[in-house]
Amino acid sequence: MDTAAMRARKQDLRAGLRARRAQTYAGEAGAARRSREAQQLLGRAAPLRALVRSAVETGGEAPLVAAYHPTPVEADVMPLARELAGLGARLIFPAAAGRRLEWIAWDGHSPFVDSPGRGFGREPEGEHLGPDALSRALLVLTPAVAVDRSGTRIGHGAGYYDRALAGVGDGTRVVSVIHPDELLEVGALPRGEHDVPIPAVLTADALVRLVTIDVS
Rank of each mutant, 00 (worst) to 15 (best):
T3W: 04
R7P: 07
Q11R: 15
L13E: 01
R14D: 05
R14C: 07
L17A: 08
R18I: 15
A19R: 13
R21F: 00
A22P: 02
Q23T: 15
T24Y: 01
A26E: 09
A32Q: 12
R33F: 10
R33H: 08
R33Y: 06
S35C: 11
S35N: 10
R36L: 12
E37P: 06
A38M: 02
Q39G: 14
Q39W: 13
L41Q: 06
L42S: 12
G43M: 03
G43N: 09
R44C: 12
A45L: 04
A46I: 03
L48Y: 07
R49K: 12
L51Q: 09
A55T: 08
E57R: 14
G60L: 03
G60N: 00
Y68F: 15
Y68D: 06
H69Q: 13
H69S: 14
H69R: 14
P70M: 01
P70S: 06
P72I: 08
V73D: 14
A75C: 09
A75H: 04
V77Q: 03
L80D: 01
L80V: 12
A81L: 08
R82K: 14
A85G: 12
G86S: 07
R90I: 00
I92M: 04
I92L: 11
P94G: 01
R99M: 10
R100S: 12
L101E: 07
E102H: 09
W103V: 02
A105H: 05
D107V: 14
H109L: 07
H109T: 13
H109C: 11
S110Y: 05
P111D: 09
P111W: 10
F112Y: 06
D114I: 14
S115E: 00
P116K: 12
G117P: 06
R118S: 11
G121I: 08
P124N: 04
E125P: 05
E125N: 13
E125Q: 15
G126Y: 11
E127V: 15
G130L: 07
P131T: 15
D132H: 14
A133F: 07
L134H: 02
S135M: 09
S135I: 10
A137Y: 05
L138Q: 00
L141P: 04
L141F: 04
T142H: 00
P143S: 08
A144M: 00
A144Y: 01
V145T: 14
A146T: 10
G151V: 10
R153I: 01
G155M: 06
A158F: 02
A158C: 03
Y161I: 09
D162Y: 10
V168W: 02
G169Q: 03
R173P: 07
R173S: 14
V175K: 00
S176V: 00
V177I: 11
I178S: 01
I178V: 15
P180G: 08
P180C: 04
D181P: 14
E185G: 15
L189R: 00
P190Y: 11
P190T: 14
P190F: 09
R191W: 00
R191H: 03
G192T: 12
E193N: 12
H194K: 05
D195W: 05
V196H: 11
P197T: 01
P197I: 04
A200K: 03
A200R: 09
V201E: 03
V201T: 11
L202Q: 01
A204S: 11
A204D: 03
D205L: 13
A206T: 09
A206N: 01
V208Y: 00
L210W: 04
L210E: 00
L210R: 06
I213E: 10
D214W: 08
V215N: 13
